[in-house]
């Protein structure tokens, strides 16, 4: 994501300094994302300890197979992202485009499965604020679904941002401006994508399995 004009920006001493700066910049940005998601996950965990039975019962209403499928899809997209970074380093434009497209495809599949899940919850009248009808679990179940929708919508939003950035990468790769001398944009996007995968790795057991 650093400057697009020639590889070396004017205010850096050498290309290595620029690359270290870009990599460090993304890692520090991921630090803020850890605290951002940390706040949301901490809210969920605190409420889980306050209302253990209701959260467990409400958690069983989520479909475990779809959650597992999503986890597998996202891990595979992490693999394809890593392979696209390898392709960028080796300068193989065709394979880079292929792996990037695969990653975006898997990302879209993930969002699709997520949309299906949300629709089924909408159909069962479990969306808080919209059509939540409390059943024998009482009002606290709405709190569970509020946390569930907050966490998953935040995660989906980050996925959409990741897909948008990858769209830009595909265009750059198509124009041949990504290669062994300019692979940082791919690597930095890879770091971001792996982080989004790690967030889901934690969300999946917390929401679906416990």
């Amino acid at each position: 994501m650093s400057s697009s004009a020639g590889a070396l920006a004017h205010h850096f001493a050498n290309i290595h300094q620029q690359r270290t700066a870009a990599r460090l910049g993304m890692w520090i940005f991921l630090l803020t994302e850890v605290m951002f998601f940390g706040g949301a996950i901490a809210t969920y965990c605190i409420y889980r300890t306050l209302h253990p039975y209701v959260f467990e019962a409400a958690g069983r209403e989520l479909s475990k197979p779809l959650g597992t499928l999503n986890t597998v899809v996202l891990i595979t997209s992490s693999l394809t992202m890593a392979l696209s970074v390898v392709a960028a380093h080796s300068g193989n434009r065709r394979r880079l485009l292929g792996w990037l497209a695969a990653t975006m495809g898997l990302g879209l599949v993930f969002l699709g499965v997520k949309a299906i899940e949300w629709y089924t919850e909408y159909a069962h009248h479990r969306v808080p604020g919209l059509n939540f009808t409390p059943d024998e679990l009482g009002p606290t179940a709405e709190l569970f679904f509020a946390c569930y929708f907050a966490l998953t919508s935040l995660h989906a939003l980050h996925m959409i941002i990741g897909l948008a950035v990858m769209g830009v990468l595909v265009r750059l790769a198509y124009q041949g401006r990504l290669g062994p001398e300019r692979f940082i944009p791919v690597e930095v996007t890879g770091l971001y994508w792996h982080f989004v995968d790690i967030v889901w790795i934690f969300l999946f057991p917390l929401l679906y399995l416990l």
């Binding site: 209302h51 039975y53 209701v54 019962a57 409390p134 024998e136 679990l137 009482g138 009002p139 606290t140």
Partner: peptide, 20 residues
């Protein structure tokens, strides 16, 4: 207000309605 929050041992799935 939330009968299912803390159920007394030996009383299983309670049928007590919420008075919320």
């Amino acid at each position: 207000l939330h009968p299912q929050a803390k159920i007394v041992a030996g009383f299983g799935e309670t049928a007590m309605p919420t008075f919320e």
